Amino acid sequence: AQASVVANQLIPINTRLTLVMMRSEVVTPVGIPAEDIPALVSMQVNRAVPLGTTLMPDMVKGYA
Rank of each mutant, 00 (worst) to 15 (best):
R47L: 12
M22G: 00
V49W: 02
M56G: 05
Q44S: 15
M43C: 03
A34K: 07
P38S: 12
I11H: 00
K61M: 14
N8S: 09
I11L: 09
P33D: 07
A34I: 07
G52Y: 05
M22D: 01
Q2A: 12
V41W: 04
P38M: 12
T15W: 07
V27K: 06
M22K: 00
M21Q: 04
R16H: 14
R23Y: 06
L19S: 07
Q2P: 15
G62I: 05
T53A: 13
E25F: 06
Y63K: 03
V30S: 14
G62K: 08
V41P: 02
P57M: 06
V26H: 07
A34S: 13
E35R: 15
R16K: 09
L10D: 11
T53I: 11
S24F: 07
L55V: 11
V45E: 01
L19Q: 06
P33R: 14
M59C: 03
S42T: 10
V26R: 08
P12G: 07
G52I: 02
L19K: 13
L10Q: 13
E35W: 09
I13S: 14
A1E: 06
A1H: 10
L10H: 14
G52L: 04
N8Y: 04
Q9S: 14
T54K: 04
A1N: 12
A48W: 09
P50Y: 09
Q44D: 05
M21D: 06
P33K: 13
M56S: 08
S42A: 10
K61Y: 13
I32E: 01
S4Q: 01
P50N: 09
N8D: 11
T54Y: 02
V5K: 00
E25H: 15
L40I: 15
A39T: 15
A1R: 08
V5Q: 01
M56D: 05
P29W: 03
V30H: 10
A34T: 11
L17V: 03
S4I: 01
V5S: 03
K61Q: 14
V45A: 06
T28A: 12
A3S: 09
A34L: 03
P57Y: 08
P29S: 03
L55R: 00
A3Q: 11
L55I: 10
G62Y: 08
